[in-house]
């Protein structure tokens, strides 16, 4: 459990990659997060997190085709690995358990 710890921004990025399914690349992820969470995302922060998640094995990536819009540069598409999915689920479950452990009267 403890090895699968996810930071909150890491979790957001991982989930967004999941949302975008096979269209998840830098700018798309950035805009998706900005749209859904109404916060700005620095490209630097995003890429740093992507690198970290990939190093941890939660993400895998592959190059797409180069486009003119990107100055002839290829997109790099990210997909959530099975290991990543497990990490997300375990995080969610942990949260769930924590929620359920709160006594009924505490949040009233």
């Amino acid at each position: 459990m403890s090895q699968q710890y996810l930071g909150s921004f890491e979790e957001i990025v991982l989930l967004t990659v999941g949302i975008l399914h096979d269209k998840a690349y830098g700018v798309a992820i950035k805009e998706e997060i900005e749209k859904r969470l109404s916060r700005t995302v620095r490209l630097g922060a995003l890429h740093a997190t992507l690198v970290r998640l990939e190093n941890k094995g939660y993400l895998s990536s592959a190059y797409g085709e180069p486009t003119k819009k990107r100055g002839g540069k290829r997109k790099r598409y990210f997909t959530v690995t099975t290991y990543g999915q497990k990490a997300l689920k375990s995080t969610m479950q942990t949260r769930q358990q924590l929620w359920e452990s709160i006594p009924g009267f505490a949040f009233e």
Binding site: G26, K30, L43, H47, K69, R70, K73, R74, K75, R76
Partner: peptide, 11 residues
């Protein structure tokens, strides 16, 4: 570099 530069160009 490639993906970052590409992202920047697109943005």
């Amino acid at each position: 570099y490639e993906q970052v530069d590409g992202d920047l160009n697109e943005l």
